[in-house]
Each structure stands twice: as structure tokens, then as C-alpha cells.
Design a binder for these strands. Structure first.
Length: 486
RNA sequence: GGUCUCGUGGCCGAGUGGCUAGGCAGAGCUCUGCAAAAGCUUCCACAGCGGUUCGAAUCCGCUCGAGACCUCCA
């Protein structure tokens, strides 16, 4: 029997049994990208991790509403009054919304390549300005924010009198004062830890809107509070995001929600870890921000070859979502080969010879697979067990183990469910192998077999090599020859 | 400086107080005309130093090292 799903709640740093607020419904909010440029492969890992979680929850039968936002309001860069989206727009001489549109589309295309399911709702920040302004007003009315020079700031000190700012990230307000780095430059604030709910816009600022406090734009943390509440309610089950968003972003979100709605918004906080390159977090500024496009084409100085989307997905799934994952050509090549072995075995299951008895224990594999996933979505363990299954399949193929028809059928269902539905791995070596192509290859194999019988090895090797060039790998087994698309 | 995480074999990466992770790479064997594929076997490990324990890579302490966050960040 499958055990209960347990997950690591980063709110209290403990593994907890997953109990939705209103089963079978599950509300899940994940912080999406800011669409001012192409996402990099580290972003793909984050959304891939949540895709795994989403898929598994769906598989367990939950009715999941998965909300992932698009941040299309540019938020401020360091010491300029310019934001990322406006800057990009200025550099490329286009409308900010063109920037947004371009990279939103690009993001969707990318996630589709990596076989990530689209969220149920993908709201945009600019589409929820009224709600954001309302929340700012509510917080102001409660005396937990103040207006200053056309901007509105969250009053951390006032909030902290009755609440605990820093509960998620384990910080306390006093530390935040004393450790605040220099160069804040935000003289409008009463307290260094205060954060903007609404920001006054300079005249040259492009993306700005009217508000009760003047022309400006919303603070970065506001959109997630507003949109999660709007679509999932004041309390919902799961909130996810990258670890780097824990502070200040998620901390501020909690504060806004509690200040505005007087509710503990999130039951389970899930934070995914970073993809690293040479042990360091990927960052464009460090020259380590590899884009999916570069990965897929191999067109990057640090890459020795191109990697397929499924290779990359599989590579990422071989690490737990809460661990950092270090990224190298060697590791990716290992994933490429491993994935191929897995997929070949998966496709072979339905063609396995059956016997009266089974020497394999399908139920045991099943329990191990669910056990792994129920243990905080431990995909690397699940994959390890899938490779156990690969071994069984190969031994049966070699006639060293046996399986009966019922077991073969349940093994096939189990394996396909885990590989395709839960891990989201697709067979990329498209067997565009229509029956006609298969017939042609079988014919070529017959010719090769005859050549071998005639000891015409140069011909048989030539057939083998040519088929490989075309994209089919020949495998001589004990009981004849088979082939696989490469 | 503050908060926190982590240090596993050639590489990536799981895990647990005593029992095989797994993938890739390496070695040997089986199969084979050769190869590939597949199978079997095998080598390589838990940063260092102490402590707790019958027993620790797994718990505690210290040292060294790495990283994340404290500012936009997946």
C-alpha cells in the first residue's frame, strides 16, 4: 500500500504529511518569471521541479489549480530609475509590452519543449493593478503602511508589533536594521526594512499607472499576494518558488497577506534549489547563465555538444529538487546515455515474452516507486528503481528471468505512468517509424542477415553503418536482430 | 558582518545509526565474424580531528572548505 505523501515545508523546516485544506482540491501558486529576457536553464529547473510536483499531485487524483504568474511590471534596477523591461524596450526601441509579449511567448515555447504542463491560470501583474491598488489601500487603512513622497511603504515595525516579520526566512527585524547593506538610497522609508507597496514613478519612467498616491507602479511583492488570493483564496495549500525568493519576496508576501487579509495565507511553502555551474549559482552577470536555446543547440563556449530537452529534464530529475545540482558536460552526457537506456527498456516491455510464472515482483517495484515519490517527491530514488526495472526487462529479454502476461501488463502500465505521466519524459527519438519504414528496415536486416550467412561481412557491416547514419541502431541479439531509432 | 545550507567513490547524485543507492566512466567475462547492444562480475566513498554509542559516512562539537540569502534574482 502506498504511504501518504509527505513534503518538506520550508515554513517550519520539517517534513509533513500533505493534507490539503479542501480535498480533493489543491491550490498551488508558483512565482513565475519576469519576462524581460530569455529564461535561463536555471529557471527551467525551477519550473521543471514544480512540474514534477504538479504532475504527481494530479496523478494522485487531486484537482489541482496551478497558478503561475508572469511578472510583466518592470521592477527597479539598482540605482537608476529604470526597470528591466523598460530598459530592454529602450535598448531595442520597442514598446515595453512588446518585450513582455516576446519573452512570454518564448517562455511558453521553452516550457513546452521541456514538456512542462501549462498552469491552470497564468495571471499577469499588469492585469491585476486594480486589485493591487486595493490591497495597498487596505494595508494603509489598517495602519500598517504609510505614504511618503508618492510612494507607499509597508511599515515593518508596526506590523511586527503583532506579527512576526521574518518567520519564513528566520530573520528578525533588529538584524535587518543593523545588517542592511549600505546604499539603500531610499530616504523615503521610515525603517530600512520597510519595502515598497507602491512606488512613485519618475517622469521618464515608462511603465506607470495612476493611483490614489500619484503616478507610479506596484511593488514587486504585491502581485503575488493579490493574484494568489484572487485565484486560490486567502488561504491555500502550496506556494512555491526558487530558494532565492524566500527573502525578501516570500517574506513580504506573507506580511502583505496577513496585514491585508488577516489570514495565514500558505499551508506549505516549497522552495526549489538552484542549478549551479562549477559550483556557483547561474547568473547572467557571471557569464554562467546558459539559455535553453544554447543548451539545445550546443552553441555555448562551455558546452561541448547539444543536449536534448529530455536529456536535460532527465538530468534535472536525477537530483532532488531541494538540492543544488551542478551542471557539467560530463554529467549531462551521463544523463543522455542513461535516459536512452531507460527509454529503450520502457519500449521493450510490451514485447517481452510471457511465461506461466513471473520471477519478478512488480508490486515491489510499484511500492518502491510510490514510496520514493511520496517521500517529498524524491525523483532520483524513483529513477534508481526504474533502472532496477530496466535490469529486469533486460534479463527477461535474455531469458534469464520470466514474467507472466498479467505482470507484464501491470509493469507496462506502471512504467509508462511513471516515466511519461509523472516524470514527464517523452520519447524524443520519434518512431516516425510508420509501418512502411519498419518494413524497409526489416528488409535491410534480412539482406544483412543473408550477407552474414554468405560471410560477406563488408556488405553486412555496410548495411549496419548506413542504417546508423540514417538514424537506426542495430542490435544483434540471441534470437535475431532488432533496431532502435537513435 | 548577520542568517542559513552543504562537503559522499573518476564525474553527477541518493540515502540511512549496523544491511546494494542509481546513472555515466573504468576493468574482466558471456554473447558475436567484428562491433554495437544486452547480461554477469568487479574497482573506487562518505573533508579533517575529537566525542556520544556495542556500532557512525549517518548524532554532537571543533577545524578547514564551498555555496545561498541579507539588493533584482528561479
Amino acid at each position: 500500500m502506498q504511504t501518504q505523501l509527505k513534503l518538506y515545508n520550508s515554513k517550519n523546516r520539517e517534513i509533513e504529511v500533505f493534507e490539503p485544506l479542501n480535498p480533493p482540491f489543491v491550490g498551488m501558486y508558483v512565482c513565475g518569471p519576469t519576462v524581460y529576457s530569455e529564461v535561463h536553464i536555471g529557471n527551467v529547473r525551477t519550473f521543471g521541479s514544480f512540474d514534477l510536483i504538479y504532475r504527481y499531485l494530479l496523478h494522485l487524483g487531486y484537482k489541482v489549480r496551478y497558478v503561475r504568474n508572469i511578472t510583466d511590471v518592470g521592477h527597479l534596477l539598482d540605482d537608476t530609475s529604470e526597470d528591466r523591461i523598460s530598459k530592454k524596450a529602450r535598448l531595442e526601441n520597442i514598446e515595453p509590452m512588446e518585450v513582455v509579449q516576446r519573452y512570454t511567448v518564448d517562455f511558453h515555447q521553452t516550457m513546452e519543449k521541456f514538456n512542462a504542463l501549462p498552469p491552470s491560470i497564468e495571471p499577469t501583474a499588469t492585469g491585476h493593478l486594480i486589485e493591487q491598488i486595493e490591497l495597498v489601500q487596505t494595508i494603509l487603512d489598517k495602519g500598517l503602511a504609510y505614504v511618503s513622497n508618492g510612494s507607499v511603504y509597508f511599515d515593518v515595525a508596526a506590523y511586527n508589533k503583532s506579527r512576526n516579520y521574518g518567520e519564513l526566512s528566520g530573520r528578525n527585524v533588529d538584524d535587518l536594521i543593523s545588517n542592511k547593506r549600505a546604499l539603500d538610497g531610499q530616504d523615503d522609508k521610515k525603517h530600512p526594512a520597510d519595502f515598497a507597496l507602491w512606488k512613485n514613478a519618475e517622469p521618464q519612467h515608462i511603465m506607470k499607472w495612476n493611483s490614489p498616491w500619484g503616478v507610479g507602479f506596484p511593488g514587486w511583492h504585491l502581485e503575488c499576494s493579490v493574484m494568489s488570493t484572487k485565484y486560490l483564496g486567502k488561504q491555500f495549500d502550496i506556494h512555491g518558488g526558487g530558494m532565492d525568493l524566500k527573502f525578501p519576496h516570500h517574506e513580504c508576501e506573507i506580511a502583505q497577506n496577513k496585514a491585508g487579509y488577516d489570514e495565514e495565507p500558505v499551508k506549505y511553502w516549497l522552495h526549489t534549489n538552484m542549478l549551479t555551474f562549477n559550483g556557483k549559482k547561474m547568473a547572467k552577470s557571471e557569464g554562467t547563465g546558459v539559455t535553453p536555446r544554447e543548451m539545445l543547440t550546443g552553441n555555448h563556449p562551455l558546452l561541448t555538444q547539444a543536449y536534448s530537452a529530455m536529456t536535460i529534464r532527465f538530468f534535472m530529475l536525477q537530483a532532488h529538487y531541494r538540492s543544488t545540482l551542478d551542471f557539467s558536460n560530463e554529467a549531462l552526457q551521463a544523463a543522455e546515455k542513461g535516459l536512452k537506456r531507460l527509454m529503450v527498456a520502457l519500449e521493450a516491455i510490451d514485447g517481452l515474452p510471457t511465461f506461466d510464472k513471473s520471477s519478478v515482483d512488480v508490486n515491489d517495484i510499484k511500492e518502491k516507486l510510490y514510496g520514493a515519490m511520496n517521500d517529498d517527491f524524491n525523483s532520483p530514488i524513483a529513477i534508481a528503481h526504474l533502472f532496477e526495472m530496466v535490469k529486469w526487462v533486460n534479463l527477461i529479454t535474455d531469458g534469464k528471468e520470466t514474467i507472466n502476461e498479467a505482470d507484464r501488463s501491470s509493469l507496462s502500465t506502471l512504467a509508462h505512468t511513471f516515466v511519461h505521466d509523472i516524470l514527464g519524459l517523452q520519447n524524443e527519438t520519434s518512431n516516425d517509424g510508420s509501418e512502411k519504414i519498419d518494413g524497409l528496415i526489416q528488409f535491410a536486416l534480412e539482406l544483412r542477415q543473408q550477407a552474414k550467412l554468405d560471410k560477406n561481412y563488408s556488405l553486412s557491416d555496410n548495411i549496419r553503418d548506413r542504417l546508423k547514419e540514417i538514424g537506426f541502431e542495430i542490435k544483434d541479439g540471441k534470437d535475431g536482430t532488432t533496431y532502435n531509432p537513435i
